[in-house]
Amino acid sequence: MIVVTGANGQLGRLVIEELLLRTAAENIVATVRNPETAGELAALGIQLRQADYDQPATLTKAFAGAEKVLLISSSAVGQRVPQHQAVIHAAEEAGVQLLAYTSILHCDRSPLQLAEEHQQTEALLNASSVATVILRNGWYTENYTMSIPVMLEMKQLFGCAAEGRFSTASRHDYATAAATVLTTDNQAGKVYELAGDHSFSLAEFAALLSRQSGTQVSFQNLSETDFTRGLVQAGLPEGFAALLANAESGAAEGWLFDDSKQLQALIGRPTTPAEDTVQAALS
């Protein structure tokens, strides 16, 4: 039995869909904080179980009988480590044979502030009694396409990555990778650096968006401080805005670039071109 945590999130739902292409519905358990909001998942014929990273007792119960668990990293930046520790402990208690974790690209050596909680989580995984597989996911193309309406309105793409390159893939690509790992033997101990086949700078992304939308969008590079301030003015919490700006500054130094093509090899096909994800967003 395969358990997917955070299954009601954007990545979790896609992982479930991919798992259903590879195994029967009765082999899949989706854990969610509130099952009443997961009707679409229940309609797929899989089992729903209530689980909350902040309520360890629910995790132990949710993992009962599980052979494999996918720990999708929490979205609660600043609270991830104790939440992930609770999941790891519950997996140990349940006798889980394989625990997969969605980490960040080049986690072991990344200077990005976003990597810190992932580094701590990977250390906890390494110290646990559960066999693990680490999926170090790169940037999602959707990190930028979700802001396309604002870019088109302002005719500007603001950032602080300078000429840094982003090896992005679609959220669906990363979901496919997770489902593949969960349904393939001999994964224990493996660490995957997952990123798109191709990369772009933010200036190139702006040019791509301009071509596909018919609206001229230009890239304006800011300082990390000014970009953080702009994100806060756009409504993001100050701490999270600072993390995103720090990540872009890290991209300027190459920390969100990877050309190993491990993601392509794992999923058995080329990763989704940024052009396709942009077009889907425009549609």
Rank of each mutant, 00 (worst) to 15 (best):
A115Y: 00
V87H: 08
L125W: 14
I88G: 08
C107D: 01
I104E: 01
L99I: 13
H106V: 00
T121H: 08
A123M: 13
L105Y: 02
C107H: 00
P111V: 02
R109M: 03
P111C: 00
L112Q: 10
Q83R: 13
H89Y: 10
V87Y: 12
H106N: 04
A94L: 13
L112P: 02
E93R: 09
A123G: 11
L114E: 07
T121F: 08
V96N: 05
C107F: 00
A123Y: 10
Q97D: 09
P111N: 02
L105V: 01
A127P: 02
H89W: 07
R109W: 02
E92K: 00
I88D: 14
V96T: 09
A90E: 04
H89Q: 15
S129C: 02
I88S: 10
A91N: 05
S129F: 07
H89S: 15
H84T: 08
L124R: 06
Y101R: 05
A123P: 09
Q85K: 15
L124C: 06
Q120I: 09
E92Y: 04
E92W: 06
A90T: 15
Q97R: 12
Q119T: 07
R109S: 06
L99E: 12
L98D: 15
I88A: 13
Q120T: 05
G95P: 06
A94K: 06
S129L: 09
H118I: 01
N126E: 14
S103G: 05
A123W: 10
I104N: 00
H89L: 14
L98Q: 11
E116H: 05
G95C: 08
V81Y: 09
E122K: 11
V81F: 11
E92D: 03
Q97Y: 06
I88W: 13
A86D: 08
A127M: 12
R109T: 05
A86T: 07
N126F: 07
Q113P: 08
D108Y: 05
V96A: 07
E117L: 05
L124G: 03
G95T: 08
A86Q: 12
D108K: 02
A91V: 10
V87Q: 07
E116T: 03
R109E: 14
L112S: 10
Q113I: 00
H118M: 03
E116N: 11
L112M: 09
A127S: 15
A100E: 06
V96F: 09
D108E: 10
N126L: 09
E116Y: 07
Q85G: 13
S103P: 10
A127Y: 06
D108W: 03
Q97L: 13
E117S: 10
S129N: 12
A94Y: 15
Q113N: 10
H89P: 04
V96M: 04
L105R: 01
A90P: 01
A91Q: 07
H84D: 14
Q113G: 11
S110L: 00
